[in-house]
Amino acid sequence: MSSRTASSRRAPAKRRKSSRSSAGQGMTSWLAILAVVAGGIALYDNRATVLKELSPWLSKERSVAASPAPKPDATREKQSQPKTQSTAAKGPVPPASVGVTKAAVPASRPAVASTETAALTGENFSGKFYFCGTSGLDNCVMSGDTFWYRKTKIVLADIAAPRTDGAACQQERDRGFAAKVRLKDLLSSGRFDLETLKVQATGAAAGVLRVATRDGRSLGSILVSEGLAKPRMARQQSWCP
């Protein structure tokens, strides 16, 4: 009887311990759940601060993930390629021949000088004349007895005008300039004719020798009558006093 009573007394003690342990485990799980919920609420309330703290780490991970794989260096590839094409294109250069000179090829000139000279004889020539140096050597007056027409130098064969370049005195230079202006005005005033005159001229007067006339009167004779020129066949006197 005594053994039964002792066992019956110990049995409730074991049950009490098991019930206490199960209750303690249940409280621990509930506390953990409550802590997780409280932590989530706190994280949600402070989400701006948390994202600000974690943004540097997130940006580093994204840059590493987005960076492409390194490409091979293009300059190394070019240097590694063999230079066979350039050497093959150039080829060996033959040595220059020694003691052999090439014959000079004469410049081809159009054979129109004689045609232009023949064409500058006739009637009804006209044009607007300028001073040479402002319009090139075409339709311009060089001096009181020389002008360019159709790119041909024409010397008045019947007169000799004072010089402007290389004049012996200021009076000759001034009169030569006046003759130059007068001849430009006469040539630009209307149509004129060009006739040949068998007079040889050399030096500064070399050119196509012509007599310019208008209405049968020589333009050179007009300059002579105005004291701006002298007849070419006459004895030449100095223009200086």
Results as ranks from 00 to 15, higher is better:
S55I: 10
P72R: 08
Q81P: 00
E77S: 10
A113N: 12
G99F: 03
K78Q: 05
K52D: 15
A65K: 12
A88R: 04
G133N: 04
E61S: 07
T84R: 08
L51W: 10
S114D: 14
D145K: 00
K52R: 15
E61W: 05
K90C: 06
A66V: 11
S97P: 08
K83E: 09
A113K: 14
P110W: 04
F125L: 06
G122N: 03
V98H: 02
R109L: 15
R76Q: 12
E123S: 14
S126I: 05
P70D: 09
G144K: 03
N139L: 11
L137S: 11
K102T: 10
Q85H: 01
T75D: 12
G144R: 03
K128P: 07
S97T: 12
S108I: 12
P110C: 11
F131N: 13
W148T: 01
Q85V: 13
A96P: 09
Q81M: 10
F125S: 06
K83A: 12
V112I: 15
R62K: 09
T75K: 14
P82D: 13
K128C: 00
S67K: 15
K102C: 04
R109Q: 14
S67P: 01
G136M: 06
P56K: 09
N124C: 03
P70G: 03
S108F: 12
T134K: 04
W148H: 05
S80I: 04
G144A: 05
T75M: 12
P110G: 10
V93P: 00
Y130F: 07
L54D: 02
V98N: 05
A74L: 14
S97A: 14
K102P: 05
N124D: 12
L137E: 07
A107N: 04
S114P: 05
S63W: 05
A104P: 04
G136P: 03
A66L: 14
Y149V: 03
S86A: 15
W148L: 02
V64A: 15
S114H: 11
E53R: 15
P70L: 08
Y149P: 02
V64F: 13
T121V: 13
K78F: 11
E123L: 06
G133E: 03
L120T: 07
T117V: 14
S86V: 14
V50E: 02
C140Y: 02
S55G: 10
